[in-house]
Every structure is written in structure tokens, then in C-alpha cells.
């Protein structure tokens, strides 16, 4: 009896099974590197795992989740996180829109400017944090040196010494990095607005503000909502920037939720508690992502 060759087996395979076969490597990789760790994190969140006491886990059910509600560190981190996210969303969306509007105009060297503004996007997040940290360094920083040279300050000052200013600076740093990507998304949307709409508005006597208000903004509504949601998600995930810029300090003044997950896991070694916090944060972000996706889909329809 002759056995079928590999090629013959593939040809005889129905489409469903063949599709599954093609997807198998991806499914295996995702299971090992994504689903596995997520399940492990959920398991950890249901166990008491304090590595300063014992490397072993002790099942405690939802106790870690319940403890989070009364944890003063979480209570302090929530408003800080919202403040940082709020500032970042407002800064980044407004700046990206402004930049997209400028880049949508015709001017000499526009192509070069479009390429040049992509540079911050290419900077690694950690490098971004270090860069801004040194710019605001109280003794060697560019900001102090520039302000001093211009006579705007009489002596060097400390910039990262309180929560409000430090988180605002973190927000500016985050905006600077995200700006090119957001501006490009908005620019693409701007370029999809038919020229005829602008001409018609002009013929109706609409000025620049009215054209923006009644032509551009309604057209960008969907993509703007997407940008806002995207920035909320990114801001809630902030860790690398805070780690490199302030390390949560002074004291715990700039500890945001995701940074607190790191502190609980890798400084306090309380993996159960950190996993519970991470899971809750992830669920919140997944919810927002779903919302963002729903908006994107509805806009396409």
C-alpha cells in the first residue's frame, strides 16, 4: 500500500484544518508567552506569595483583591494616576491636533518636517525618561542652564521636587514621545476630508475657526475619540517613564498604579498583592481598549 506524500496530505486536507495548521505556530507562541503568563498571574493573585517569608505560595482566594481596597498606597496612587493620565491626554491630543493641522497646510519643506517630527517616536521609552531627567537635573540640567542664561531664574531650582510639577513634566515627556504617532493618525484623517467641503464652507463665508469647528472637527470626531482612548490606556500603563524620571519620588509623591505594581512585586517581593493589582489594572485597560475598538468599528461603519 502506498502512503500519501506530504504534499498530497495537504491537498486532501479540508480548509478549516489547513487554516488551523497554519495558525498553529502563532497559537503555540501566544499560549506559551501570553496566555500562560496571564493564567500564572491570575493564580498568583489568588495566593499569598511573599518572597521575603517563603518562596512557596499559599492559597488565599480573593484576599489580595480585598486588601487593595484598604491599601493606603493604592488610595494615594489612584488620584496621581488619574492626574497624570488627564494631563497626558489633554496635552498630547491638543498638541497632536495642532501639529496635524500645521502639517496639513502647504508650505516649503513640508516633507522634511513630516520626516523630522518622527524622531521622538524612534526614541526608546527608557531613553526618553533619562533624557528628560537630565534636562530637568537640578545641577546639570539644560532647563536650569537656559533659564539662568536668559535671566529668568536667579539660581538653579529643583524641578522634580513635588508631585504636581513632577507628574506634569512626566506628562510633557510622554506627550513628546507620543506626538508623532498621534499627529500622523490625525493627519491621515485630515487628508481624507474632501477639499470640496472646505471650498463650500469658504463660499458660505466661513472663516478659519468656523471651518475648523464645522468641517474639520465633526470629521475628526471618531479618530479623536480613538486617540483619547489610546492615550488614556498608554497613560494608565505608565511605568518606564516614571521609573527613569523620578523613581516614584520624592518619597512616594509620583508613584502611579503601574509603578506601585512594580514596587510591590520587585521591592517588597509581595507577588500575590502585585499580581492582584496588575490584574485589576489590566481589566480596566482591557475594558477601555474594548471601548476604543467599538468606537473604531462604529466609525468605519
Amino acid at each position: 500500500m502506498a502512503f500519501p506524500t506530504v504534499s498530497q496530505r495537504f491537498q486532501r486536507m479540508d480548509e478549516g484544518r489547513f487554516g488551523l495548521l497554519l495558525m498553529a505556530p502563532t497559537i503555540i507562541i501566544l499560549t506559551v508567552f501570553l496566555v500562560g503568563p496571564i493564567l500564572y498571574a491570575i493564580w498568583m493573585s489568588l495566593n499569598s506569595m511573599d518572597l521575603t517569608i517563603s518562596p512557596d505560595a499559599d492559597f488565599v482566594g480573593v484576599q489580595n483583591y480585598v486588601q487593595l481596597v484598604d491599601d493606603p498606597a493604592v488610595q494615594d496612587a489612584v488620584p496621581r494616576t488619574l492626574y497624570f493620565a488627564g494631563l497626558t491626554v489633554v496635552f498630547s491630543t491638543a498638541m497632536a491636533l495642532l501639529l496635524a493641522l500645521v502639517l496639513n497646510e502647504s508650505f516649503r519643506g513640508r516633507k522634511w518636517v513630516r520626516v523630522f517630527i518622527l524622531l521622538p517616536w524612534a526614541v526608546a521609552p527608557v531613553v526618553n525618561g533619562v533624557l528628560w531627567r537630565y534636562m530637568f537635573h537640578p545641577q546639570y540640567g539644560l532647563i536650569n542652564a537656559a533659564l539662568y542664561a536668559l535671566g529668568l531664574i536667579k539660581e538653579y531650582r529643583v524641578w522634580l521636587d513635588n508631585a504636581a510639577v513632577s507628574l506634569a513634566i512626566a506628562s510633557v515627556a510622554s506627550t513628546w514621545k507620543a506626538l508623532p504617532f498621534l499627529a500622523l493618525i490625525l493627519l491621515a484623517a485630515l487628508q481624507s476630508i474632501p477639499e470640496s467641503l472646505y471650498r463650500a464652507a469658504k463660499m458660505d463665508g466661513a472663516g478659519a475657526w468656523s471651518r475648523f469647528r464645522f468641517v474639520v472637527l465633526p470629521h475628526l470626531r471618531g479618530i479623536l475619540i480613538f486617540v483619547v482612548l489610546l492615550q488614556i490606556i498608554v497613560s494608565l500603563q505608565a511605568f518606564d517613564l516614571i521609573y527613569t524620571l523620578t523613581r516614584g519620588g520624592p518619597g512616594t509623591d509620583t508613584v502611579v498604579l503601574n509603578y506601585l505594581v512594580y514596587v510591590n512585586a520587585f521591592e517588597r517581593l509581595n507577588l500575590g498583592n502585585a499580581a492582584a493589582m496588575g490584574i485589576l489594572l489590566a481589566l480596566f485597560i482591557v475594558g477601555l481598549s474594548g471601548l476604543s475598538l467599538a468606537f473604531a468599528v462604529s466609525r468605519r461603519r
Binding site: P138, Q139, Y156, R157, V158, L160, D161, R247, G249, P250
Partner: peptide, 16 residues
């Protein structure tokens, strides 16, 4: 020096 207060490491202090 108030600008030294945020420093964390002896490496940074030593340089100054």
C-alpha cells in the same frame, strides 16, 4: 544646597 536634595547616589554627589 537645595538642588542637591533630589540626588540619590553617592556617585552624583561625589562628582559635585
Amino acid at each position: 544646597d537645595p538642588t542637591g536634595l533630589p540626588l540619590v547616589s553617592s556617585i552624583e554627589q561625589g562628582k559635585v
